[in-house]
Every structure is written in C-alpha cells, then in structure tokens.
Design a protein around this nucleic acid. Structure first.
Lengths: 116, 116
DNA sequence: ATTGAATGATACGGGACCGAAACGACCATT
DNA sequence: AATGGTCGTTTCGGTCCCGTATCATTCAAT
C-alpha cells in the first residue's frame, strides 16, 4: 500500500498549502530554501554546505546564502567542524524544528480537508 | 473518508517535490506565483486581477507582476474584458495547462513513493 | 616548510520581488 | 459634459536571490 492521490487532489493540496503559507506572518521561503530546510530536518546528519549543494544539485553560494537567511530566522545554525576546520556543520534549532513541525501539520490538515 | 497523511510523510512529500522542481530546467515559481497559477487553473473563471488579489489576500501589484512573469512563460494570458474595459480577464493557456498537469502528476508520483 | 586540493565565504553585476503611492483608462451617475 | 469611483498598471526605493568568479582558511602529501 502507498499514499494515493489523484492529480486534481494533489494540485488542490498544493494550492491550499501555498495559500495558507502566504497569509502567515512568516516571510515565505523560496523553493530552494524549503528544500534545504527539509533536507536538514529529514535527512540524517551531518549536513555540510558541500553536501547540501550536492544533494540539491545547486552551487555552494546558494547554500551559504540560504543558511545566512534561515540562520537570521533562527531556523538553522552553523558550527565549525572541530575535526576538520574547513567544514561547516549545519544543525537544527528548536525554532526550526517547531517551524517544520507546524508546516507538516498544516499539510496534513489540508490533505484531510480535500474533497474525494 | 479523507486523504490521510502523517506529518513526516507530508514533509517528505514536500521535500521530494521541491527537489524535483529545483532540478527541472523551468525556473521555479515563487510560492505566490504557484498559488496564483493554481487558483487560475483550479477555481472557476472568470479571474480578474482584483479577484485574484482578494483570493490570495495580497495587493494588486503582486498579481500584475506575477501575471507579467507567468505571461512571459506563456503559462497564462491576459485579455481585456469587452463588457467592462477596466477589467482584465486572466485565461489559461495550453502551455499552462500542460505545466499544471505535469506538476500534479509529479506530486502524485512522489506521494506514491512515500514510505509508510 | 611548501605545494596543491578542498571547503566555505565573499564580490560583482544583473534580475526579480516587495509595499506604498501615484497614474491613466474606463464606467456610472448626475 | 463633469465628477467620483473602480480597475489594472507603473513608478519608486529597497531588499533579496542568482550564477560566476575569486578569496581565505585548512588539510594533506611531499
């Protein structure tokens, strides 16, 4: 068994989530920022700039800038790797975990309300 | 009965769709643009700038600019309302319909591949 | 110690978006 | 015809993002 969605339901779901996100106070993340954030919170650590860039298939400055922005939002934090000081380890934060959790709940809620 | 998703599944779904969108050639839409496009294709016409602005709870320039961008991408088209020439009617395009259809299919596909 | 590779950050020019305000075209009422 | 309201667009100043190229730091191998 797997999650079954019809295309029109999928689109309606995306629309409803997008509408909800837009109307929240929080400045909305770009698609790339969202992908980075979710990767940090869903994929197993450690997460480095280079690793994230490879995972998303984007350049490193994209990751650096996204971490700047989301770091200012307190959604992620950066730490130098003490074993190899070239590396930066990206870590989760309490605020970030809460944000991701709320986001997941919002999607679930919109999915529940979908017409069949 | 309704669509049932667990939060972690919802997040994984969003991540996978975002990752797929980023790696497609197509320049990705902002959250607002996506909401506008989906509203045009899912909600019943006619669609006006003012109506879309009210639906999304954003200002009119946001709609105008999004229509500029997505019009250049051929995802939507604009037409003056001949009955009231102040209005602009936003219409679907073949390319836009195809884009939305593909997007829906992509979400469905990612949902199907979700671990339980 | 020196060299070369690897990592992440930064500089630069260009483009897109935002909110607020002003604008032109159009309609409806008088 | 004049007036006030409605609709969509444009302008303004500012911020953020992008891709490319370059930079400083650190590591590893000589």
């Amino acid at each position: 068994m797997s999650i079954t969605l019809r295309p029109v339901q999928a689109l309606r779901l995306w629309q409803n989530v997008a509408l909800a996100e837009i109307n929240d106070q929080r400045p909305d993340l770009t698609m790339r920022q969202a992908a980075i954030l979710l990767t940090i919170y869903l994929d197993p650590p450690p997460h480095t700039v280079r690793g994230l860039a490879a995972r998303l298939n984007v350049t490193k400055p994209v990751i650096t800038r996204a971490l700047d922005t989301m770091g200012a939002m307190k959604l992620v934090s950066r730490h130098r790797d003490q074993r190899d000081k070239r590396n930066v380890l990206v870590r989760r934060t309490v605020e970030g975990a809460l944000f991701v959790e709320r986001f997941g709940d919002a999607i679930v809620e919109k999915a529940r309300g979908l017409p069949l």
